[in-house]
Design a protein around this nucleic acid. Sequence first.
DNA 1: GGTTGACCTGGAGCCCACTCCAGGTGGCAT
DNA 2: ATGCCACCTGGAGTGGGCTCCAGGTCAACC
Lengths: 134, 134
Amino acid sequence: MKTFTPAQVVSETGFSLDTLRYYERIGLLDRIERNTAGQRRFTDRDVGWLMTIRCLRDTGMPIAEMLRFAELTRAGDHNIPERILLLEEHDRRVEEQIAHWRSRQQGVQHKIAYYRDVVKLHHFADTGDDMAEV
Amino acid sequence: MKTFTPAQVVSETGFSLDTLRYYERIGLLDRIERNTAGQRRFTDRDVGWLMTIRCLRDTGMPIAEMLRFAELTRAGDHNIPERILLLEEHDRRVEEQIAHWRSRQQGVQHKIAYYRDVVKLHHFADTGDDMAEV
DNA sequence: GGTTGACCTGGAGCCCACTCCAGGTGGCAT
DNA sequence: ATGCCACCTGGAGTGGGCTCCAGGTCAACC
């Protein structure tokens, strides 16, 4: 059965080695197998799980909630509906978050447009620019 | 000239009173005027600036960079082009960030779809579900 | 057979962005 | 006049999420 060294997992998942150890320590990863020298050997399942973690992490899920998800996953198939609910709820929050970012981004773009106007007008008159323009 | 009490600014900007004080302390806000009792009285300019901060903050700009922007703004009109560059750069990062979120979100949705399938099939056979499925 | 170099452990430290606290002041409503 | 409440200050504390460190163990290459 194929396994991965820590360095391979680092380059595949983008997590730092310290972060991998940290995740194992807090129980976000199951205890990773060791070789005779005590070094970690990750299975494809470990790496797959880390990819899932990557998605959740990068979409802003806090570690506490990923822990909850990990526990559900460990507990067996019977709670898949619960896992679905958790992910759906998260998906909804991501959607909201993106919408929020978009609307704030428009504020930023508005400000840029305003500044561009100021620069354009600047050839004709002083502007009285200040911290609260726009 | 109209001014705002701390409580009014809290409710208008969504920042907590402690956060407003913190922002003033670190120089993200100019020194806010005080009344005779030493209590803050915010001007519309202060509130306008806070709205700008809100946009930048909510789109993930770190405080250190907002401080740079505040310094540019304080320094006068001549550096508006520099401010434009800063905001454009930020806007680009926001765009990237959103794209990244979207793609990770699809990973989550994929997982949800997978789980739904598992639930559907569950009436016919055990699935051998584990942490690395998908 | 010696020197890298990848890895190990437990624990401490760090950064960011707040948030809370103790102790105090001034003003307004009853 | 007496509560009470909103506010003040300087400074300490918090929480999340890593990140770093010291001191040590194998394994592999020259």
